[in-house]
Amino acid sequence: MNSAEGHGRMKAGDPTEEAHEPHEPAESAESAESDEPDEHLRYAAHLDALARVAGPDEPGLIGTVLTDPDRTMAQAAVLRHLDLRAAQLCSGPGWEEWAQTMTRTVARHPFLTRRLREWSLFRAVTLRLPWHEDELLAASDWLQLKTAAGPNREALAVLAERGRTKRIRNTARTGLARERKRER
């Protein structure tokens, strides 16, 4: 006698299985959505709105998002938006004006302001514009790691020797080796 027979249950896939197993109705999309915490729904709505915003409306929308009662969630949504936009604009001619506008917009939010400064430093390193070693060494792990994965040999050498973490130093060393192979 197998255990299914011993407990009065049929094998999986047996058409009579429902008679022995309680059947839970599938949760509708509406009820599943209502179970989602409010801050998750607002975060998704903020990301959606930020993804759709056009030039002159961007600062106003960011300001509105930053008034959300959940400050941490609001700043996370704005941070994600700034990272996406900065990556798009970083090497182009629209960077300076956008970065200045965004810096004014998030001026009362130190973490967001710092991220914009770090994007400006990343841009300088990437485009081989003037930058200072001390700024790079004082930057966050995020920026050091992002820079260590890039092609600027001078920055790679600095980070390979003095990057804050072992991961940053190793990534920079790997980048230096990669760049040396490209030269050959």
Score class of each variant (00 low, 15 high):
78 V>G: 14
62 I>C: 02
42 R>T: 11
139 A>C: 10
31 S>G: 01
102 M>N: 07
160 A>W: 04
52 R>K: 12
56 P>Q: 14
137 L>G: 07
43 Y>G: 06
113 T>F: 02
142 W>S: 10
70 D>W: 03
44 A>R: 11
25 P>G: 04
88 Q>R: 06
83 D>V: 02
46 H>Q: 07
32 A>C: 03
148 A>G: 10
67 T>N: 01
134 D>C: 05
142 W>F: 14
56 P>R: 15
62 I>Q: 01
145 L>H: 14
183 E>C: 12
183 E>D: 15
25 P>K: 10
132 H>P: 00
98 W>R: 01
48 D>M: 07
66 L>V: 01
136 L>Q: 05
45 A>V: 03
106 V>N: 07
143 L>Y: 02
141 D>F: 13
52 R>H: 08
70 D>V: 03
166 K>M: 11
120 S>I: 03
48 D>W: 09
36 E>W: 06
122 F>I: 10
54 A>G: 14
115 R>I: 08
75 Q>G: 03
129 L>E: 15
149 A>S: 11
13 G>Q: 13
43 Y>M: 10
102 M>K: 11
169 R>Q: 08
114 R>F: 08
19 A>F: 12
25 P>W: 08
119 W>S: 08
160 A>R: 04
62 I>K: 03
143 L>E: 00
157 A>Y: 02
127 L>W: 04
104 R>A: 09
45 A>G: 05
25 P>H: 09
128 R>V: 13
25 P>V: 12
112 L>D: 04
14 D>R: 01
100 Q>S: 09
177 A>L: 11
20 H>I: 09
10 M>A: 05
49 A>R: 15
117 R>S: 14
110 P>D: 15
139 A>E: 10
150 G>L: 08
174 T>D: 10
172 A>R: 12
152 N>S: 01
69 P>C: 00
124 A>L: 00
130 P>L: 06
127 L>Y: 12
40 H>W: 14
43 Y>W: 09
95 W>D: 00
114 R>D: 15
37 P>G: 00
97 E>W: 01
141 D>H: 13
86 A>F: 00
160 A>T: 07
27 E>P: 08
127 L>D: 10
79 L>K: 02
10 M>D: 06
68 D>I: 02
184 R>G: 15
102 M>A: 15
167 R>S: 14
94 G>K: 07
42 R>C: 05
8 G>C: 08
125 V>A: 03
63 G>D: 07
65 V>T: 07
80 R>K: 13
162 R>K: 14
179 E>H: 08
79 L>D: 09
32 A>I: 01
132 H>D: 11
2 N>H: 14
24 E>D: 09
164 R>E: 12
44 A>Y: 02
32 A>R: 12
142 W>Q: 07
29 A>Y: 04
57 D>L: 11
140 S>M: 06
167 R>C: 08
131 W>G: 04
112 L>G: 03
106 V>D: 01
164 R>F: 07
157 A>Q: 09
67 T>Q: 00
72 T>H: 03
112 L>W: 02
51 A>M: 02
1 M>D: 10
66 L>S: 00
34 S>C: 01
41 L>T: 01
54 A>Y: 14
58 E>S: 15
